[in-house]
């Protein structure tokens, strides 16, 4: 297998794992934290697809701003998802 293909595969696996973890987490704070990892990996994927504008937007908005806004919202409301 080529090196580049292997790198892409590992990145896609990372994306899928973080997405599943963010959806299935009961602790909402954990879900937000994992979702910020998802945004970071997604920005890396955009850059590997040669779309640096999108990578910049994803890194700035997805990983930076929305994570903190989500955390503020969780602190103001409730942390655990109800069963």
């Amino acid at each position: 297998m080529k090196m580049g293909t292997a790198l892409n595969l590992v990145l896609i696996l990372l994306l899928l794992t973080t997405a599943l973890l963010a959806v299935t987490a009961r602790d909402l704070l954990a879900a937000v934290v994992v979702f910020s990892v998802y945004s970071l990996i997604m920005a890396l994927m955009w850059q590997r697809l040669q779309a640096p504008d999108l990578a910049l937007t994803e890194a700035a908005v997805g990983a930076g701003v929305t994570t903190v806004l989500f955390v503020i919202t969780i602190f103001k409301t409730r942390r655990r998802e109800e069963e």
């Binding site: 640096p52 504008d53 990578a55 910049l56 937007t57 700035a60 930076g64 701003v65 903190v68």
Partner: peptide, 17 residues
Amino acid sequence: SPGGGFQGGAVIGGSMI
């Protein structure tokens, strides 16, 4: 270069955060 208005604005928002 890559980037532009919205990206720079989001980074300023991060600094304000």
